Simulated assay, not measured.
Amino acid sequence: MPVNCPRLTWIQATSAGIGQYVERTGLAESDITFTTAAGAHGVPLAEFALAGVLHFVKGLPRLRDWQRAHHWESHTTRQLAGSRVMVVGLGGIGREVARLFSLMGVEVWGVGRPGRSYTVPGVSRVHSFLDFEAALPDVDALILACPLTGWTRGLIDETRLRMLRPDAVLVNIARGPVVDEEALVEALREGRLGGACLDVFAAEPLPAGSPLWDMDNVIVSPHSASTVTTENAYITDIFTDNLRRRLEGRPLRNLYSRENGY
């Protein structure tokens, strides 16, 4: 129990991924109950992921350059419908990503924890963290929507990045350390990846000297993709519902599991 708040027994977080915060502050060793804001950010993050994939699939970086140069040239782009994406993490955010992409005519594959069974609307195939590599060459986009845990830290390393197709798109709406950032930079520099749409990074704020800032095949978002005008209302609804539950002795929503890290 924190010495400066001896009567504190419950904390309602304002985000879904609080594992790093709980560990970093030492609160993981306390008896405090934590509840997360899971469910509040699924829609805006799914929309951001869709925007990022469409940005590269429809060739917007090239169109932007041509517009600046006043250049007019007929060209061909890819179609999102009929493509295939892999969503890593099948919690609330991953499920919303899968739902949105499936509505766009995209085949969605998922990746979840080993030993668990998943039935997710819009997902046609599910792999585990132990065997998803074999499917990486078959996807057009890899969308990371998982919490940062022992399973996912460094999950997308140089070896797995090399398994992706040269025109594949990587979207990270999870946590920065899920990706080996140096390996990602090299893959983008060498043209081994079509593009990256990143809302999270290994160090935040993103250091001024990071090469990601100046890469035409990268979208840099300052960990704000989930911040929308309706966010506070959603989080307040979760808090007030949990407060009623706590006062009435009912189970709380979105209980944080120290064992799982989310």
Rank of each mutant, 00 (worst) to 15 (best):
I156D: 11
A134W: 05
R68Y: 00
L63Q: 14
Q67D: 03
G122W: 06
G122L: 07
R125L: 11
H127L: 11
F56G: 01
L63I: 15
Q79P: 00
G154L: 07
H71V: 06
V43E: 09
A134G: 15
R84S: 11
G154N: 04
W151Y: 13
E73T: 13
T35V: 06
F48Y: 15
T152M: 06
G82K: 02
A37P: 03
W151V: 04
V87N: 00
G92E: 15
A46R: 06
V97P: 02
R153T: 15
L45D: 07
L144H: 01
F101W: 03
F56C: 06
H55K: 00
E133Q: 12
A49P: 00
A134R: 12
T36V: 05
F56L: 01
L63V: 15
F129A: 13
A46E: 04
L142I: 06
R78N: 14
I93S: 01
F48G: 02
H127R: 13
G115K: 01
L100K: 09
V85P: 05
G42C: 04
G115P: 08
S74K: 14
A40I: 07
V108C: 03
P114G: 08
V108D: 04
P137H: 02
G91C: 10
T77S: 08
A69W: 00
R62Q: 15
L155E: 03
T152K: 04
D65K: 15
Q67C: 09
V53H: 05
S117D: 10
L90V: 11
V120G: 01
S128M: 07
G39S: 11
H75E: 15
L148V: 09
A98E: 06
G52Y: 01
V85Y: 05
A69M: 13
V97Y: 01
A49Y: 03
G150E: 12
G52V: 13
A37I: 10
G110E: 07
G42L: 06
T149L: 11
V139Q: 06
L90T: 12
T35W: 02
Q79G: 12
D65G: 10
I156E: 07
A40H: 01
Q67V: 13
V106N: 02
A46N: 08
W66F: 12
V57T: 14
F129M: 13
R68A: 14
R64M: 14
F56P: 03
H127P: 04
A51L: 14
D138W: 00
L103Q: 15
E96A: 12
W66E: 15
S128I: 09
T35D: 10
G150I: 11
V123Y: 01
V87C: 02
G150T: 12
A69F: 01
M104W: 08
F129H: 13
H70L: 11
G59R: 00
V108A: 08
Q67Y: 07
A81I: 08
L144D: 02
V108P: 05
